[in-house]
Design a protein around this nucleic acid. Structure first.
Lengths: 207, 207
DNA sequence: GGCCACGCTAAGCGCCCGCTCACCGTCGGC
DNA sequence: GCCGACGGTGAGCGGGCGCTTAGCGTGGCC
């Protein structure tokens, strides 16, 4: 994270990987608009307006409105997967790694709430090929969490009768944070991450 | 439930409270369309077409497209609240009542998945007054679950450091079922309900 | 200094949206 | 047998959508 930009909502928005500058401004504007109103309720005029450009400027950097969503979804899923992989592959017991994974995944969903909302809830707006690509990434997300839980079961740390079902529930709990979390609420992303990490350890019988 | 209609997806759709018949057919068509594509991506022509009527017929029974969403959301939240109240007020220990509440709430989100999706994820498409009415119902939903957890803490059955945070997590887990559940998946609504009830009991330290 | 490439804008095309309106068939009451 | 009420239709209005195109300003290169 070489550069970062603080928005009004207090969220940090790197998006370093998107260049040139005008393309990044459009993409950040699209993330905000999609998160607020949803993909279908957002107009290209609204996105361009938020980025301080004319409607036509969007089509210099992106072929269609859907390509914007695809790029956002792809980058967001890459980041989410990266967070889970980092936690899964660190040293430590399965319980430590699971708590780390849930804590950091939840912190991301709360702290980068606008991005996470688009990533988690606008998937159906993508066309078949783009959706297939993203679904493949989500399977990898599932595999990382399942791997930690399987490790904990193998080592005797965890007591989990249904590994796949519990994996689903753990991810479900984390993802739903993007739906309800708000910066005006009583909890910080760090507090929610710590709370949820503890709840998940109990779910796997390690609490 | 005096009458029930089996749809292609295998879901039971009562909607007895909506009359006359044409208004109910339009509403059921709207539920399916909103669940599949989202409120903003659904056209009034699509809704009317699914109900076997012309586009203009919709406006005989509903003032606007938004009124359809409002009615769906209202009826759905009433039903969800009814399910939780029934579980909360039955006889039995707090653990039994919590397991019953989570089990039946999850079964509803899985079995009536199309309705639940609209109810849980299309709230932002409502105007300010309609949304305020629905938000009030959601606070009652939260209060029912929190009440059971408080009972369990008071009786010593549960060990919950953060009652409000845990309430939020329990509801979050249940609600997210509407996002990922599919009838083509490996689990029945009953199985998911039982799995989740067990996980929640562990979350409150009663597992 | 001339010039072209590039990033951007103003204007607008074709389409489809939510919604309306004039009209029509049917059916119960007298 | 007539008639009004009512649920429904066909056509279409005003407007906003995603996206395109012709042209313009500017900055780097010879």
């Amino acid at each position: 994270m070489s550069t970062a930009e603080e928005t009004a909502g207090g969220e940090v928005e790197p998006w370093d990987e998107v260049t040139p500058d005008a393309a990044r401004r459009l993409l950040v504007a699209a993330v905000e608009a999609f998160a607020e109103r949803g993909y279908h309720a957002t107009t290209t005029r609204d996105i361009a307006g938020r980025a301080g450009m004319s409607p036509a400027a969007l089509y210099i950097h992106y072929k269609t409105k859907e390509e914007l969503l695809h790029r956002i979804s792809r980058i967001g899923h890459d980041k989410a997967l990266d967070i889970l992989r980092t936690a899964a592959r660190r040293e430590g017991s399965a319980a430590e790694r699971l708590a780390d994974a849930v804590g950091s995944f939840v912190r991301w969903h709360a702290g980068r709430r606008t991005t996470a909302r688009v990533v988690q809830y606008e998937l159906d707006a993508l066309g078949p090929e783009a959706r297939a690509e993203i679904v493949a990434l989500r399977r990898q997300v599932d595999a990382e969490v399942r791997g930690i839980i399987e490790d904990g079961v193998a080592s005797g740390e965890f007591d989990v009768p249904d590994v796949q079902g519990t994996t689903l529930a753990v991810l479900s709990l984390c993802i739903d944070v993007a739906r309800w979390f708000t910066v005006n609420g009583p909890r910080t992303p760090e507090e929610v991450g710590a709370l949820y990490a503890g709840l998940v350890l109990r779910m796997v019988g390690a609490g």
